[in-house]
């Protein structure tokens, strides 16, 4: 084939392709979708994202490419995603809370919380307060009594997490000075759980979902939720235990792992958006996905955009209101 033929072929194919697009504007999606994961590969959210991507890809009929863009406490990847075209070929799977509060409040993020649509809060993790199985602390009352003695207890949380805020908030509400507690602010769930299992700290607070690995080595004391979680019936809802002190604290979720698209996607391509949401819903609700989620212990709840928006906003506002406590 000579050069002229190649050029002709190229032009023809471009024209054909162009006309196909023109004829069927609604043929969304017709090529690979990129899913941004603003964290490094291999973690819990990444696993959930890859599973979801694979199921969603089957429903949509195009490949979904999960691209990890870690850094800056999920800021780097979220910022990248915000700058991609809102055409439905860029989606993100991320826990908007607690992370986006920090992006918006302290890092000068150009986006606001309602620049995104939280299509589905697929896994809402709850904070679980645990002690080592060798610990003498049996109940939340024991822990509170210990907290009243300066320097007696040590604890571990992930720095700046919902648990970090919840714990300090609980102490503040009970009138206990923060200095009473030797609080280690770890840099991730793994180190926190290791320290807890090894009784390096007296108690620890971390997402219960994902803590299954240490359940053999710990006792679950309290869950930061309104109701008992059927998976951990022994953990008492925190406000139930606090009732005897006549106080109550707001409930912050540990993290809200959610599918995220830009709001402009819905505004500019309403039909594509509907296609996307419907396919995502079918993927999550399919028996295979539900079974896989059951086996692999990952979140597969369909909350839908409206409820998810409420969950994210409630957590965001609570975090915003109380984050000053970290200072």
């Amino acid at each position: 084939m000579n050069l002229r033929n190649i050029m002709l072929a190229t032009i023809t194919s471009v024209l054909t392709f162009g006309s196909t697009v023109a004829v069927s504007q609604d043929a969304y999606p017709d090529h690979t979708i990129e899913m941004t994961g603003p964290y490094s590969a291999g973690g819990g959210t990444d696993r959930l994202a890859r599973f979801t991507a694979s199921a969603l890809s089957d429903e949509l009929g195009v490949p979904i490419n999960v691209v990890n863009r870690p850094g800056g406490g999920l800021f780097t990847g979220t910022l990248y995603f915000f700058n991609q075209a809102p055409d439905g070929y860029n989606i993100m799977f991320t826990p908007p809370t607690p992370y986006m509060v920090n992006h918006i409040e302290n890092m000068g993020a150009p986006y606001k919380i309602d620049d995104f649509i939280y299509v589905n809060a697929q896994e809402v993790a709850q904070s679980l307060l645990m002690v080592s199985e060798t610990s003498e602390l049996q109940t939340l009352e024991d822990i509170i009594a210990g907290l009243r003695e300066p320097g007696k207890l040590s604890a571990g949380v992930i720095a700046g997490s919902g648990e970090h805020i919840s714990l300090l908030l609980m102490m503040k509400t009970l009138g206990i000075p923060a200095e009473n507690l030797r609080l280690v602010t770890f840099d991730g769930g793994g180190p926190t759980r290791t320290a807890l299992a090894g009784a390096q700290i007296d108690f620890g607070m971390v997402a219960g979902q994902g803590s299954e690995v240490i359940f053999d080595q710990v006792r679950k004391i309290a869950v930061f939720a309104d109701e008992i979680n059927p998976d951990w019936p022994e953990a008492v809802p925190v406000n139930e235990a606090l009732a005897q002190f006549d106080v109550e604290i707001p409930i912050l979720d540990s993290s809200v792992r959610s599918m995220v698209v830009r709001r402009e996607f819905k505004e500019q391509y309403p039909e594509r958006y509907e296609t996307f949401v419907a396919a995502y819903r079918r993927a999550v609700e399919s028996p295979e996905f539900q079974q896989a989620a059951e086996d692999g212990k990952f979140g597969a709840v369909w909350n839908g955009p409206e409820v998810s928006q409420e969950i994210v906003e409630r957590n965001f506002n609570l975090l915003l209101e109380h984050s000053a406590i970290l200072e």
Partner: peptide, 10 residues
């Protein structure tokens, strides 16, 4: 985890 296996003492 994908194969429903968790490590640990148990």
């Amino acid at each position: 985890a994908m194969h429903n296996v968790t490590g640990g003492p148990r």
